[in-house]
């Protein structure tokens, strides 16, 4: 189906883009790669008067790392670029895994990681790992910039903490601490190219005795926003990493999940998969942590 009519805007600076957002509030939509937005336009799920592309804004596609600033993924960095970036593969390989688990080759050549985050779908592939790794979303309103902790970014399906005049410019991921491991686990009805029925991101830090010193677990597709597995996290603190403690953490995570039944999976199956994938993610993350 052809797209509904809109006026197309292609600002060449961040400040210009933010003033356009301000000027056309309520009537304007942002497009990065467009792999969500163009589909929504074509389905008439949105009918903005103005569509604003970010692609001409300079320097938004950069991926960089420094020990002080951590990893910085610019808003226009493509899923494909994150998937193969030597910096990401070195500093946060699970972010590359999550990018690779997203969509198809063509969609990864068009879509951005930031678009996946801002689209705020509860099942988004790139969100759980970013939550587990305690990422921060940098938002700009042209003259002002603020950092939104990812735990505060998601307000509901499709709703984020961005203000109407704000553009998300970068994802900041803090440097991974010593003896820390990360994992991303996903299950979907089809093995490839499918939206997750459940996805889990986990990051665990071990102490000298290989006991759990810190842990963050994020569960996708089991609530209106990505959920933290708070009970499991609390339980694991100070515990030794054994098959038993990891299995218990999985069980507790399933208790915190509030999935629905839909075409991809029913509620009971989702709960069971939260348990399995959480245990699996913690197992992989802790085995990586031992040697990191």
């Amino acid at each position: 189906m052809s797209l509904p009519q809109f006026t197309f805007l292609m600002p060449t600076s961040l400040s210009e883009a933010c003033s356009l957002l301000e000027e056309h509030q309520g009537k304007i939509k942002i497009k990065a790669g467009g792999t969500d937005m163009i589909v929504r336009l074509s389905h008439r799920a949105v009918k903005p008067d103005f569509l604003m592309a970010l692609k001409k804004i300079p320097d938004l596609n950069q991926i960089s790392y420094s020990p002080e600033a951590g990893l910085n993924i610019g808003a226009l960095a493509l899923l494909r670029e994150v998937e193969i970036s030597p910096i990401v593969l070195e500093q946060a390989p699970m972010l590359a895994r999550a990018a690779r688990a997203t969509a198809t080759v063509q969609i990864r050549n068009m879509g951005t990681v930031m678009g996946n985050v801002c689209n705020a779908s509860p099942s988004a592939d790139n969100i759980p790992t970013l939550v587990a790794m305690n990422a921060v979303i940098v938002a700009s309103s042209g003259d002002q910039e603020r950092e939104i902790p990812i735990d505060e970014f998601f307000l509901g399906p499709g709703r984020s903490a961005l203000q109407a005049n704000e553009i998300a410019t970068a994802i900041k991921v803090p440097k991974v601490a010593a003896k820390t491991g990360v994992s991303y686990q996903k299950i979907s009805p089809r093995s490839k190219v499918d939206i997750a029925a459940v996805n889990i991101g986990a990051m665990i830090t071990l102490d000298k005795a290989n006991k759990c010193e810190a842990v963050r677990i994020s569960m996708g597709a089991v609530g209106p926003t990505p959920l933290r597995a708070k009970q499991a996290e609390k339980y694991l603190l100070g515990k030794e990493i054994t098959d038993e403690t990891l299995a218990e953490a999985g069980r507790l995570a399933a208790e915190d999940a509030s999935p629905i039944t839909d075409v991809r999976a029913n509620r009971e199956y989702r709960k069971l998969m939260v348990e399995v994938l959480t245990t699996r993610a913690l197992k992989e993350a802790s085995s990586l942590a031992v040697n990191y």
Binding site: G34, I38, V39, T104, Q106, M110
Partner: peptide, 22 residues
């Protein structure tokens, strides 16, 4: 809608869906 790949072209040598490209 980006699912089938029948519309695949290359932009700057990258494969993309022409149905989702303006």
């Amino acid at each position: 809608t980006g699912d089938c790949g029948a519309c695949t072209v290359h932009i700057d040598d990258q494969s993309v869906s022409s149905c989702l490209t303006l």
